[in-house]
């Protein structure tokens, strides 16, 4: 049961969410294994954000379920978790990187405090150790550790995203959700961030579900890609196959609309 190679970390089964008569997303099914990076691509309104919220248990499905293999090896239905268990997942085994860093950070708290919060939330009570861990993580996301006591308001957009990543990874999560992690950043800053994320994902063996409208992000980060349109997954598979040999008309349109560098 606890074979980490053959048991998915997260499974979506017939997952769907309606908003009254309007479809948020429907009939989503996939397995995600440890160390896998899945990109969910599509345009605004395609249902990819709804899906991300369903997968991360922040929204209750109107159909289907999401199963997650907890650290103790038991696979649980996210819908059956208590609020306490769900929150515990969110501050230990999961990370969530928001497009808008002000939603993912405490803007009134120093960078060190932002990184240390999860440690304190799970009971770390040694200031020196918390600070050492914060310094270590700032270094790993390439933030000058002498700026540990500055608030994120003093940071650039790219630094804020990197701080957000450090804040999420400090508890060694196994699964990280990313919602347009490079959105709104300059192209050169995007490249550096993607490069960093790619390295961390490989080094730590993270499973990642990244929502993006940017196919270059999908290509650079992900192993597999799901293409969403009108609330449904219209094509999914190996990222390079979806992008190089797209089957569906919509995917062909998406791929043909990007500029090749």
């Amino acid at each position: 049961m606890t074979d980490t190679l053959s048991t998915p970390l997260l499974s979506a089964e017939n997952l769907g969410r309606d908003y009254g008569a309007r479809i948020g997303c429907r009939d989503v099914a996939f397995d995600l294994f440890e160390g896998e990076v899945l990109a969910i691509v599509g345009e605004s309104g395609s249902g990819k954000s709804t899906l991300l919220n369903l997968l991360s248990g922040q929204l209750a499905p109107t159909a289907g379920r999401v199963a997650y293999r907890m650290r103790d090896g038991a696979t649980r239905d996210l819908g059956s978790l208590s609020e306490a268990e769900r929150r515990f997942l969110f501050r230990t085994d999961w990370g969530f990187v928001h497009q808008d860093a002000t939603r993912g950070l405490r803007m009134g708290v120093s960078a060190g405090g932002n990184v240390g919060e999860r440690l304190m939330a799970v009971g770390e009570r040694h200031y020196g150790r918390i600070r050492a861990a914060a310094e270590d993580w700032l270094g790993r996301v390439e933030i000058d550790t002498t700026r540990i006591d500055e608030k994120p308001t003093a940071y650039s957009g790219g630094m804020r995203q990197r701080l957000q990543i450090a804040r999420n990874l400090v508890t060694a999560p196994r699964l990280v959700f990313m919602d347009e992690p490079t959105g709104g950043l300059d192209v050169s800053v995007q490249a550096r961030l993607l490069d960093l994320v790619r390295g961390l994902v490989a080094d730590l063996g993270l499973a990642v579900i990244v929502v993006t409208h940017d196919l270059a992000v999908a290509r650079l980060l992900s192993h597999r890609t799901m293409v969403m349109k009108d609330g449904r997954v219209i094509e999914q598979g190996l990222t390079d196959r979806v992008l190089d040999d797209p089957r569906e008309a919509y995917t062909q349109l998406l791929v043909s609309s990007i500029l090749q560098p």
Binding site: G237, L238, D240, R241, D244, D245, R247
Partner: peptide, 8 residues
């Protein structure tokens, strides 16, 4: 590319 799995 088919052998590599890149093309379906």
């Amino acid at each position: 590319k088919m052998v590599f799995g890149n093309y379906g």
